[in-house]
Design a protein around this nucleic acid. Sequence first.
DNA 1: TCGTTCATGTAAGACGTTACATGATTGT
DNA 2: ACAATCATGTAACGTCTTACATGAACGA
Lengths: 174, 174
Amino acid sequence: MSLRYALLGLLADRPASGYDLLQRFKGSLANVWPATQSQIYTELSKLADAELIAVSDEGPRGRKEYTLTDTGRADLRHWLTDTKPKRVVRNEVLLRVFFLGVIPPAQAREYLSDIEAGSAEGLAALAEVKAATDWGDDDLSTYGRMALGWGERFYVMNQQWARWAREQLPPVER
Amino acid sequence: MSLRYALLGLLADRPASGYDLLQRFKGSLANVWPATQSQIYTELSKLADAELIAVSDEGPRGRKEYTLTDTGRADLRHWLTDTKPKRVVRNEVLLRVFFLGVIPPAQAREYLSDIEAGSAEGLAALAEVKAATDWGDDDLSTYGRMALGWGERFYVMNQQWARWAREQLPPVER
DNA sequence: TCGTTCATGTAAGACGTTACATGATTGT
DNA sequence: ACAATCATGTAACGTCTTACATGAACGA
């Protein structure tokens, strides 16, 4: 269901083709809701069938530009106001932490260091997104910045946690 | 794939039935990798077919106790050391943030307040888990505490972020 | 005896991933 | 002429959710 609303949400901003949406996904939404090319095209077909979006223009190479319909906008609003998000988040990085006991402490330590390094990378990637995006004062910019702020805090938190977690490890044998 | 290793990981600690695993999931792993009853039983069958686990005991009411085999333990280790976790995390709560522009600011504000309240609840739930668990100095305890520490930091971060995010909202019209 | 907990399983359908397949257009 | 990019679509397979279905054992 969420991918569906991610697409409607992007189309609420402005009309776009599947290809456009794919690009825009990479730059922002991919961080909170990854989707593949095949998934996006399939979902767009379904949305068009359901008349939540409509082809508003056709271009070269079979390009189809979709626009949000009134029904689509209503559905999007309904999702935002009348349904609750699932709070649980699947986190494979953390799942592994539970089982670090089955490998030697030295490797567990390494795993935690990798998380710390990975978080630094993530933070750097966000900085790039931040620099590469042209931020305006439109809604998507305002709320996009908000989401970005979350990402930054998330990675910083991860880094700090990983450092702390290493200190909790059984001391190195010598 | 991850559920599979979640189960192997729990069985690495000690033998258990599907029902046992279901209970243990609720208390801890559900926070990082939710799974339903039907999924767990189905996966256990597959794992037994693949001889990564084996029925080590049968009890009343058709109870089947599974034990990790050597192959299973090797597979678990391999997963931990030779494969990389997927870093991306699907987050519906945050996905919605991107699209708050389609609803009036007052409702957006409410949404952010709900996140703040939800985080407080999450934190409280973790506190309960912390109190209800009997922590030893075994590996699962050590690493379970570590994961719990992550959860606490996560919720605190979310709370702080939500408060900050509210301040970024367009000021209330009057 | 009766409700709760223990205990397992199957099936349909939605959602997600990976891979394959095709071809037009643009820029160098 | 050729490579890169634009552009869309399908198929197979795996995973996850929801719902259904059944019944034994335990404790009050």
